[in-house]
Write a protein that binds this DNA or RNA. Structure first.
Lengths: 223, 223
DNA sequence: TAAAATATGATAGTATTACTATTATATTTG
DNA sequence: CAAATATAATAGTAATACTATCATATTTTA
C-alpha cells in the first residue's frame, strides 16, 4: 500500500527562505544532513556544504541564518514527521493500552524501511537527531528560543503520548517525565549501543530498546 | 561530623600538567567551571578565561590541550566524586533493596549542602554537568577517546549501580540500560525543569525527580 | 649561594570560522 | 523585452583556536 503523500510544514520563523521552494534549498537540507553526520556538527560549516553541493556559502546564508538554525529546522522537521506517524498509527485504536503500546513502539524503534515522505532521507535524519539533537537546545539562548516556539512540536509529541498514558492510568502523576524519559532515553541508548556499549544491554532476539522501554512504562503506570 | 578529607585523582591522560599542583591550575579549573556556566561551552574560550583569572591564554594551554579536554577533565572529576560518595553511602548496608534505594537517591537528588571535598564547588560543577556534559561525548572522536579510557569512571558508576540492581533481582536483563536511563534522565529532567518545564511534572511536596526514578526502578525490577 | 630548571607572562603569528557586503550574472515572470 | 528574483563570486572583518618564541620570575638543587 502506498503512503499518503504528505507535506511537512515547518514554521517560517526557522528559515529565511523556505528550502522546500527550490532545488538549491532541498540540496542544502539533504546534503546538510549527510555532511553533519559525516563531519559532526562542530566541524560542519556552510562553506564546506557550499563546496559539496556546488554552490556558494553566501547562497546558503540566504536560506538559514546559521548552522544552529539549520539544526533547529531539522529537529522540527523530525518531530513533525514523528508526530504525523504517531497520529496516523494510533488513530481509531479504541483500547487505550493498545494505543499506548503502538506509540511506544513507534517512539523507541529504529527506522528501517525508507518511509520517504519527502525529499529527506529519514534514516539519515534520525542518525543525526540521535547524535546531535541535544546541541539544538543545550545553548545559552534556550529560554529565548523556547519562547519563540522553536521546540513546540517536540513538546506537542510529549504531550500527546502523555495523554495516552493518562488514558491507561488517569492517576499517574508523572506522565510527562515518563514520556520525555522514554523518548530521550531511547535515542540515548541507540547512541550508547553504537559508541558506549557497556552502558546498555544486548538481546539475542528482538530489539532490547523497544522491549525495555515498553516494559518500564507498563510496569510503572501499573497495568 | 567532619567529612574525610579525600583527594580526587584524575587520570593524567586528561591534562598536560596537573591543575591540582599549582595555584594557577586550581584557578583555571574553578573559574573555568563558573565561566562555562556563565557563557555556555560554545562561547567559552581560554583567552576569556585568562583575562578573568589575570593570567594568559598560553599559560592555560600548558594545563589543558583545549577546552574540550577541560570539559572531559571536569566530567571525570564529577563522576569520580559521585563514585566516592556512592561507595561511602552504600557501604555496610546489608539489605540489597536499601542499598539500591540509597544509590538511587544519591544519583537523582540535587546537591544542596556544600560537601566541599576539594577546591571545586560541586554545586556549580553539577550545574555544568547538567547543561554541558553531553557535549563531552557527542563528538566525532568519541570512539577514539572511549578507547583511551576518558569515560571509564562514568561507566564504572553505571556498572556499580547495575550490580546493586542485580542484587535485588538477579534475573533482570536490562540493568545497564535501566541505570544509564536513570542517571542521564535525572540530569535531563533537572535541565527540563529549568528550561522546558512542559516536559516534566511538578510536585507540591518533595523532589519529584527522586520519587519518579525510584518508583520506576523498583516497579521495573519487580520488588 | 649560584646555576639550572621550571613556571608563567607577553607578544606575535596562522589558518579557520562565521559571518556581512557588494557586485556580477543567470533565470524567471509579467 | 523589462523587471524582478535567485544565485554565484569575491572581498573583507572580527573572533577563535591554536603554536611559537622570548623574556622574566620563582623554585630547586648541587
Amino acid at each position: 500500500m502506498k503512503r499518503l503523500p504528505i507535506y511537512i510544514v515547518i514554521d517560517s520563523e526557522l528559515y529565511l527562505k523556505d528550502p522546500n521552494t527550490s532545488d538549491l534549498g532541498k540540496r542544502i537540507v539533504c546534503e546538510g544532513i549527510n555532511m553533519i553526520n559525516d563531519l559532526g556538527f562542530e566541524a560542519f560549516t556552510f562553506k564546506k556544504l557550499g563546496a559539496q553541493i556546488g554552490s556558494n556559502e553566501s547562497s546558503i546564508y540566504r536560506y538559514f541564518e546559521n548552522k544552529h538554525m539549520l539544526l533547529v529546522y531539522l529537529l522540527c522537521w523530525y518531530w513533525s514527521w514523528v508526530e504525523y506517524r504517531l497520529v496516523f498509527a494510533t488513530q481509531n485504536i479504541s483500547q487505550p493500552l493498545d494505543k499506548l503500546k503502538i506509540a511506544l513502539q513507534l517512539l523507541t524503534e529504529r527506522i528501517d524501511i525508507d518511509q520517504a515522505v519527502s525529499f529527506i532521507d529519514e534514516k539519515q535524519l534520525e542518525r543525526l537527531i540521535i547524535s546531535e539533537s541535544s546541541k539544538a537546545y543545550h545553548t545559552k539562548e534556550i529560554d529565548e528560543e523556547n519562547e519563540k516556539g522553536y521546540f513546540k512540536v517536540y513538546k506537542r509529541v510529549v504531550q500527546r503520548v502523555s495523554e495516552m498514558v493518562l488514558l491507561v492510568n488517569p492517576n499517574y502523576p508523572y506522565s510527562h517525565m515518563l514520556v520525555s524519559t522514554v523518548i530521550e532515553g531511547a535515542h540515548q541508548q541507540r547512541f550508547f549501543q553504537r559508541h558506549l556499549p557497556s552502558l546498555t544491554d544486548k538481546d539475542s532476539k528482538g530489539d532490547s530498546i523497544v522491549k525495555f522501554y515498553t516494559d518500564i512504562v507498563l510496569k510503572t503506570i501499573g497495568n
